[in-house]
């Protein structure tokens, strides 16, 4: 094993967190229950928080600690609580979605992972940051959340897919550039929060109009 040179423990931990994030993205892709989906989203937020805090410690960037705290408050506490309240008010807590063929979706997901890993490898070779390994994983989880938004029919899982996509983007931002400037991060966090409120209002509007949260009905709205 001549090529073997062990990385520091914090780096190993970072790789582990990134891998767990990817795993949760897959779990969300295959999850049928909305309630479990929200729990998974909260777990993903927690792991993102840990990974940001870890990279802050690794790179000695104090402002990353703030963004870790911000992530913890918004993505682990506020957003899941909001979603919880929303699905209770919409009365869809025990909703089970019939998904099209989970194994096929998983295989397509593996294809996406291979694609994004391949895409990230040449970039990572030129990158000088020690967090470059996670770039491919971040890209993969963005694509997986994207696919989740495409394959879902109901509105609430689609929104959760959107939020998970934002998680993946955040990981990409911290791994590629040591995080965005504080102002941008605050802005994005606020955007997500406001977006969530607007989505909440949309849910009620959609249901009032169509008596269902299935967005298939919205296809009727197009002009002839």
């Amino acid at each position: 094993m001549s090529h073997w040179n062990p990385a520091p423990f914090a780096q190993q931990l970072l790789d582990l967190f990134a891998s767990l994030l990817l795993l949760i993205a897959f779990a969300m892709l295959s999850q049928r229950r909305i309630l479990t989906l929200i729990h998974l989203f909260a777990w993903q937020g927690l792991i993102l928080t840990l990974s940001i805090a870890d990279s802050a410690w690794l790179t000695h960037q104090p402002h990353l600690y703030y963004s870790a705290v911000l992530t913890l408050i918004i993505k682990v506490l506020i957003l899941p609580l909001l979603l919880h309240r929303l699905i209770r008010r919409l009365d869809v807590v025990w909703d089970v979605e019939t998904l099209i063929n989970i194994p096929t979706t998983m295989l397509v997901g593996i294809g996406l992972v291979v694609f994004s890993f391949n895409l990230a490898l040449p970039i990572a070779h030129f990158s000088s940051t020690i967090l470059r390994n996670t770039l491919g994983i971040a890209l993969a989880s963005v694509l997986l959340s994207f696919m989740m938004m495409i394959t879902r029919r109901k509105a609430v899982p689609q929104v959760i897919g959107f939020l998970a996509l934002e998680n993946g983007l955040f990981l990409a931002a911290t791994s590629a550039t040591y995080g965005m400037p504080m102002v941008v991060e605050l802005g994005v966090a606020l955007d997500v929060l406001v977006g969530m409120f607007i989505f909440g209002i949309f849910f009620f509007q959609i249901r009032e109009t169509f008596d269902s949260l299935d967005i298939r009905h919205m296809e009727k709205l197009k002009e002839e």
Binding site: D15, L23, F26, P103, I110, L121, A124, N133, G136
Partner: peptide, 22 residues
């Protein structure tokens, strides 16, 4: 489905090895 998940995990493992180990 259950064994598909096992296969998925194993494939992810080997992919992660090539990404992180490089």
């Amino acid at each position: 489905e259950y064994l598909g998940t096992a296969f998925l995990l194993a494939v992810l493992a080997i992919l992660l090895h090539y990404l992180l180990g490089s």
